[in-house]
Every structure is written in structure tokens, then in C-alpha cells.
């Protein structure tokens, strides 16, 4: 029995990656769920909005790097983020103005808006590919590790080891700040309260003099910023590739549905549920088990539930289970 080594291995391969991925999904799901809460449709362009924001940030990063600006040991994309935010917010607001707004006065079925968001997805995805191409891009610079595996080993002398990457720390800190601020905004400020009122009961909100166009504008701004943040953090942690961001749509939606579509409070635990199920079901527990089980009981197989390629199947299975047993999500979301 070697509980300490087992814990360290678990932390390195499950806990840290799961936390990081969970944060990224939570931010993505928050953006999608906010739009759903106010505008009442699933925005299929959300994955490509994430890609657009990340692309804008990468382009700004290149500019800053060329100008010699650096905040080492932190990665340059962090100071490029405001540019990414600005570009994405402008893009999304322009989209709303040109594409979605004409529908609002006509009270169309939500499915028309979903279809329209599909068109927006095409256009945004195409623009991203035109501007930056389809290749895999690493854009993180600065220090890669807060502490490396070798450092951890010399400190503790354990057989197993943990490496803490800068991107992981940044993701967790940035998510905590963003979610904390959003919570404060939605519960404490006048604008945030009016948004929640609008989401709860549109007619009542209109009666009490809330300006719907302003609420819609703010929700798009928030969603664009959250999407950009989620995309940049994911890209810093892994890499940027347009098709991967499109494929993030499913786990992001799964997280939002698990948390209750339209319910911002639920999106964060939803993100963690999806991320940890994906990591746990595709992690090989052989190493952890070999520390925990007595000598001679060593497992022969990998002790892996599913091959890593089936990550997407895991988030889908969680989604289906939630749909079957609790269609409104763990935390009640909007039903209509």
C-alpha cells in the first residue's frame, strides 16, 4: 500500500487536468447558457465564437510579440486578451444587429434562431479559417511550468510526481475571478438583476420598464467575452485548431444541459461533471491501482473504462442520462 504515491499520480493525471478542463467547459457553458436564458435558443455558433475570440487573441499576441512586449514569466496572450474581447464583442454585436435582431420583433419559433445560428457558425468558422488557417497552433509563451516533475521529485522524494503547468494555474485563477465577478454582477448590480428578471419572466420584466435591447446587448457582450476567455484558456492549455473548437460544442452544451440550460449557477458544476467524467472514464487506473493493491495483486490490463478516443462518447452518455432522468438539469433550468 502506498497511498501517497497513488494520490500524487491521481492528482497529476486526473485531478489537475480535470480541474483545468472543467474550468474551460464551465466558461464555455456559461456563455451558451446566458444566451439561452435571455434569447431562448441554443446558440450553435458558440464553439466557433470561441474559435474567433481565440484567433483574435492569437493575432494580437503575434503583434505584441513582434513589438517586443512581454510579461514573462506569464504568457503574452494574457495582455492580448482585451484585444480578443474587443474583436469578439464587436463581431457578436454586429451579428446580432444584422442577423438576430430582425427576428426579435416577430416572435419566431426558437428553432428558426437555432438554424440561423447554424449559418452564423458557418460564416464565423469560415472567417477563422481564412484569417488563420486550419493548422494546429501553439501560442503559449513565457514559463511553461510553475514547478516541473523533476522539481517536485527532489522536494518530496516520492516515486510518482506532479508537474504544475502555468496554463493550469492561469485557467483556474481566471475562471475563479470570472465566475466570482459574474455572480456578483448578476446578483448585486441593477443591470444583472434586470437580466435575471428578464430571463425569469419576459413580460413582467417589460412591464416594469426593463429595456429589452439593452439586456440582449449585455448578454451578447458577456457571452462573447466568456467564449473568448474559455477559448484562449483552452488554447493555452492544449492548442488552437478551428475544428477542435467546433467539436467543443458538444461537451459545452452537455455541461450547460447538465447544469440546467439557462441557469448560470448550474453551468459551473455542469462543466466539472462533464470534464471529470471524461477524464475518469478514459484514464488508465493501472498505476494508481498498482500502488494501492498489495504485492502480487498487480492488475494485468490497463484498468481503463474506455479508450481516450471515446471522450466525446462519455460527455454524450452523461448528457443522455441527464436527459432521461432529469431533463431540466441538476439545477433546474428553463423548461420552455
Amino acid at each position: 500500500m502506498d497511498i501517497l504515491n497513488a494520490l500524487v499520480a491521481f492528482a497529476n493525471f486526473v485531478l489537475l487536468p480535470g480541474m483545468t478542463y472543467g474550468c474551460q467547459l464551465a466558461l464555455g457553458a456559461l456563455g451558451a447558457t446566458l444566451v439561452y436564458g435571455i434569447l431562448r435558443f441554443s446558440n450553435f455558433a458558440h464553439g466557433d465564437t470561441m474559435a474567433f475570440g481565440t484567433m483574435a487573441t492569437i493575432l494580437a499576441t503575434w503583434g505584441l510579440q513582434a513589438a517586443g512586449v512581454s510579461i514573462a514569466p506569464l504568457p503574452t496572450p494574457l495582455i492580448a486578451l482585451p484585444f480578443g474581447f474587443a474583436a469578439t464583442v464587436l463581431m457578436v454585436l454586429a451579428t446580432d444587429r444584422l442577423v438576430y435582431r430582425p427576428y426579435r420583433n416577430r416572435k419566431v419559433a426558437s428553432i428558426t434562431l437555432v438554424m440561423t445560428s447554424l449559418g452564423v457558425m458557418f460564416v464565423m468558422g469560415g472567417l477563422v479559417r481564412i484569417f488563420i488557417g486550419v493548422d494546429d497552433r501553439q501560442f503559449a509563451d513565457g514559463a511553461r511550468f510553475v514547478f516541473t516533475a523533476a522539481q517536485f521529485r527532489t522536494w518530496t522524494g516520492l516515486g510518482e510526481t506532479v508537474a504544475l503547468r502555468t496554463a493550469q494555474v492561469i485557467t483556474i485563477v481566471a475562471t475563479a475571478v470570472a465566475v466570482g465577478w459574474l455572480h456578483w454582477f448578476l446578483t448585486r448590480t441593477r443591470t444583472g438583476k434586470s437580466m435575471r428578471a428578464f430571463s425569469d419572466n419576459e413580460n413582467l420584466a417589460l412591464l416594469s420598464g426593463i429595456n429589452p435591447e439593452r439586456v440582449v446587448m449585455i448578454v451578447w457582450v458577456l457571452s462573447a467575452m466568456l467564449a473568448t476567455l474559455a477559448g484562449v484558456l483552452y488554447g493555452l492549455d492544449k492548442s488552437f485548431r478551428p475544428i477542435t473548437y467546433f467539436q467543443l460544442l458538444l461537451p459545452v452544451f452537455a455541461a450547460a444541459v447538465v447544469g440546467g440550460l439557462g441557469n448560470p449557477l448550474g453551468a459551473v458544476p455542469g462543466g466539472f461533471v462533464i470534464a471529470f467524467s471524461e477524464v475518469l472514464f478514459t484514464y488508465s487506473f493501472k498505476k494508481v491501482a498498482s500502488y494501492l493493491l498489495p504485492q502480487g495483486w498487480q492488475p494485468e490490463g490497463l484498468l481503463q473504462f474506455l479508450a481516450t478516443d471515446y471522450k466525446i462518447a462519455v460527455s454524450f452518455a452523461v448528457l443522455v442520462l441527464v436527459l432521461l432522468f432529469r431533463p431540466t438539469g441538476i439545477f433546474r433550468g428553463k423548461t420552455a
Binding site: V99, R129, I130
Partner: peptide
């Protein structure tokens, strides 16, 4: 080559509208 994504998206949006 990626123009076609933009064109298809634009066609879809314009038709729906």
C-alpha cells in the same frame, strides 16, 4: 478555399431571413 463556408453560411442566413 474556406470562402465556401462563408458563402454557405450567408446563403443559409439570407434564405431564413
Amino acid at each position: 478555399a474556406h470562402m465556401r463556408l462563408v458563402v454557405m453560411g450567408a446563403i443559409l442566413i439570407l434564405m431564413l431571413r
